[in-house]
């Protein structure tokens, strides 16, 4: 099944075409992705949902250049990821992709500010101070910049992670269960920041989640099951998403 989430006028910033990912060999072969074709529109927030083992994380990893596909093509902007070396993929992630993970997002030996600037520092670029201030203000961290991760609450740590993802002005931010470790109030705060980045700053975000509330912050939701895209939904609400998941699980 082919799904084109983008409106006809918008270009997809990340495009997967007939992507298959097979783990293992022989008896133990697992088809994590099975002929997935999808295009994620620029300047929008897209949620990927699906039950455990549906391939949603694998899809994210492949699109983000963390994993390679068995067949098919992944394009990030004008770059074809298939066939890139480890080094090229690393530089691509550093310069064009932002990440927000569920936990262990930060380097414990670096301060909040250093963590935010990490991808830029790795690239040897100095951050645009104006942009950095804007990002830090947006996530409300100005007073915490010199603190180490261990001195920050879980919510503050995730805010630093969001700021880091935004700092390098990447083409796309991948968020893997960004609120999975947070209580609902703090989680909502983080999702507000991510949503704000999309609405106010025009950032493209792809978020993998199994939380219908988190998915409802997205412009559209993609549903995966058994390595295939089974459905999509525009303008989701927690209720509509929850409904759809129930039918998927059934």
């Amino acid at each position: 099944m082919t799904t084109d989430l983008a409106p006809p006028t918008a270009t997809g910033i990340v495009t997967a075409t007939d992507v298959t990912k097979i783990y293992g060999s022989g008896e133990t072969t697992v088809r994590a992705l099975d002929g997935v074709t999808v295009s994620f529109p620029q300047g929008q927030m897209t949620a990927i949902m699906g039950p455990s083992g549906s391939g949603k994380s694998t899809l994210m990893h492949c699109c983000a250049g963390l994993d390679t596909v068995t067949s098919g093509s992944i394009r990030l902007g004008d770059v074809e990821l298939n066939g890139l070396s480890d080094k090229q993929l690393t530089l691509l992630r550093r310069d064009r992709v932002g990440f927000i993970f569920q936990a262990f997002n930060l380097i414990p030996t670096l301060t909040a500010k250093e963590n935010i600037e990490l991808p830029l520092a790795l690239a040897g670029r100095s951050p645009d101070p104006e942009w950095l201030r804007q990002v830090v203000d947006t996530v409300g961290l100005s007073s915490r910049l010199t603190h180490r991760p261990s001195e920050l609450s879980g919510g503050q740590q995730q805010r630093v992670a969001v700021a880091r993802a935004l700092a390098s002005q990447p083409d796309v931010i991948f968020a893997d269960e960004p609120t999975g470790n947070l209580d609902s109030r703090t989680g909502a705060e983080i999702l507000d920041f991510i949503r704000g980045a999309v609405t106010d700053l025009g950032q493209t975000v792809i978020v993998v989640t199994h939380d219908p509330v988190a998915a409802s912050y997205a412009d559209s939701v993609l549903f995966l099951a058994d390595g295939r895209i089974v459905d999509s939904m525009a303008d989701p609400t927690p209720a509509t998403v929850l409904d759809r998941i129930k039918t998927l699980d059934a």
Binding site: R93, R94, D95, F99, F104, L118, L122, A123
Partner: peptide, 12 residues
């Protein structure tokens, strides 16, 4: 931690 560093763009 090392995995995270590599993910956000630290080269080998």
């Amino acid at each position: 931690e090392l995995g995270l560093l590599r993910a956000v763009g630290q080269t080998r």
